[in-house]
Design a protein around this nucleic acid. Structure first.
Lengths: 110, 110
DNA sequence: TAATTAGATTGCAATATTACGATAAAGATT
DNA sequence: AATCTTTATCGTAATATTGCAATCTAATTA
């Protein structure tokens, strides 16, 4: 016990959960927002932006990358990170779909 | 160490992260989907729907409620849970905003 | 009122996450 | 080649999450 029982859920449910989970930390939200703000998708001055140690930021970037929410290009010495809109749109579409359905049903209870 | 350093982030970033985190588990995605599927927002046959023990489901429901994603009404003996569209829309709008901005910038790198 | 039913809470074990110092790897610069 | 810069990885401590058996609470029914 302690580990998530992924085998009891569909691939889709697991995938959506992985995307949401990756966004489930304020540092990672801050990283996404920083990548949005900076016009060129500049690299690891993200470390200077956040009040967290470099290894910690690196770990958060890794998790966002594993979830498919960001991409990283090696640019000589540095690494250029940026948002991968495909994964983000997938989650957005999923939530939009639920919102729309709720709109139609309009408070059928509670 | 080990605990999230919430104090280093804005209230908004923390709030979005809390919403995303609550959706960051396949069981909780399955619960949301079940509440969507059932027309009347029927209660704790959610336990029968998921392959998880009753206390585990109860805990997941609690987390969704704490994040503001669902509401629960006492209905005699049973409890009637349903989705709280406000919080869900908030997260949806947040992601939609990012998606839109990305659309405009159109692959400025990577 | 005793038994039943629906859920929540408690306590605990297993595992995951968060954070960071130290260190490693790899390209850039001198 | 030696050094600097940038980022990743390792190791480890602190904390959080996941899952469940056992138990508790409160409304319901017999």
């Amino acid at each position: 016990m302690g580990a998530t029982k992924t085998e009891h859920f569909t691939d889709y449910q697991n995938h959506i959960a992985i995307l949401a989970k990756a966004l489930g930390h304020p540092a990672r939200i801050a990283i996404i927002e920083y990548l949005m703000k900076v016009d060129a998708c500049i690299c690891g001055d993200i470390v200077n932006e956040l009040t967290l140690a470099q290894p910690t930021v690196s770990q958060h970037l890794k998790e966002l990358k594993n979830a498919g929410l960001i991409k990283g290009n090696i640019e000589g010495n540095a690494i250029c990170y940026c948002i991968d809109d495909k994964s983000l749109s997938k989650l957005q579409a999923y939530l939009a779909n639920i919102s729309d359905s709720l709109e139609k049903k309009k408070n059928n209870c509670c």
